[in-house]
Nucleic acid binder design. Structure first.
Lengths: 214, 214
DNA sequence: GTTTTTGTACTGACCAGTCAGTCCAAAGAT
DNA sequence: ATCTTTGGACTGACTGGTCAGTACAAAAAC
């Protein structure tokens, strides 16, 4: 994915202004939601005149859509990098999953506001940016599904594994655990959180009862 | 939880109107978000005049808060019932967890709009209803944590189990998997989805590598 | 000298919340 | 039986304010 796909010309100065606007918008929208956040607020927090917002983005929703694309680009890059690194080190697909969980946690710890905003908007229908969101969601899920699929192909995971559903469940597990960690027990370390999730994934909580799949 | 806690007098007619308003509000807010949904829209979809909304609720946010309390009451009751039923049948705590996952999926399948709206608002800060949301979240999490705690006490789950984090992760797993199911593959059966999540929880995907907890 | 930013002022649509008044069923009053 | 009153439920036009987006001249920045 071209990280600067939305910045046609893009002088350094302009890019810096855009970045300031992204940062201002992401926290405000995470806290208040898209509709409740005003363009005046975004401009003020970015330390920029309102006119500048409209000089750099066609509208409030375009600003938001580019913000989404930008953030998800960072996340998928990070997940892919984690999977590749494990593969190069000769790890199993289970190790790759573990590394991706860690990468996910690191991303959320670094960009909690973006994550919040992403979750809040993901399942909304009837919104202007819904199609953008679909594309962007598919990119994240595809990375995880890829690892699952390879694991099934190599026999490491059972071939009755439900790839799309498992991918979604993994995303949910990491997402909600991490947001809860940030919101309600921020003093805990990333290692701590990672260990708890690994444990859960290894079935040392749910137990190893016989399958009763339908 | 007293289901009519917010309706002091409550004639049958009034209660019916309130119910219509809840139903109209929940879908609209799930689709568009709280701020983007207007009171006029809610009134129109409920088939009442705008004044009626304000006759029945002090404000738009009070309507929303009562909606939250109402919905979460249904969810916790359902989860508790699932846990109790398993316990009475002599099942393990792992079985109870499994039953609660099923109950969660059933709830989400029945009230997808409510679930959507809950997820979207859960991690927002600085909102008027934030305290309501905290209380209501705690009720859900407490039910799950209770089962985990009992499982640890009885030795069924390892005593290094991180109860709050695991509870959050479980909620996330079910929530995201279910929302994805509803949104992207609604043709699949509940049994199917339940089986995939059970499998994941039993560690038959993540593998059974040695722990490397911090 | 061209691009980008600023600051201020403005418009027009939209929206939460209000309020004077309607509707009606049930309870007296005659 | 007929008239009057009462009060809860509901109505919808209206108000005061808010906000996305525009306009533009002058100043920086490059």
């Amino acid at each position: 994915m071209n990280s600067s796909s939305a910045a046609p010309g893009g002088s350094a100065r302009r890019e810096a202004t855009r970045q300031k606007l992204y940062e201002a918008a992401v926290t405000l929208i995470a806290e208040q939601g898209f509709s409740a956040t005003t363009v005046d607020e975004i401009a003020e927090r970015a330390g920029v005149a309102k006119g500048t917002v409209y000089y750099n983005f066609a509208s409030k929703s375009v600003l938001f859509e580019e913000l989404l694309r930008h953030g998800v680009g960072l996340l998928t890059a990070s997940l892919r990098e984690a999977a590749d690194r494990t593969a190069r080190a000769g790890g199993s697909k289970g190790d790759a999953l573990d590394a991706m969980i860690r990468a996910g946690l690191e991303f959320i710890a670094r960009y909690p506001a973006f994550t919040q905003l992403y979750v809040a908007e993901l399942w909304r229908t009837n919104r202007a940016w819904q199609s953008t969101l679909m594309v962007v969601r598919q990119e994240v899920v595809a990375v995880i599904e890829g690892v699952l699929r390879e694991g099934v192909a190599s026999g490491e995971f059972g071939d009755e594994t439900d790839i799309p559903l498992t991918a979604a469940a993994l995303v949910g597990m990491v997402l909600v655990a991490a947001l809860d960690w940030q919101a309600f027990q921020p003093e805990r370390s990333l290692d701590d959180v990672h260990a708890a999730l690994s444990r859960l994934l290894q079935g040392r909580v749910g137990g190893h009862r016989a399958a009763r799949a339908g």
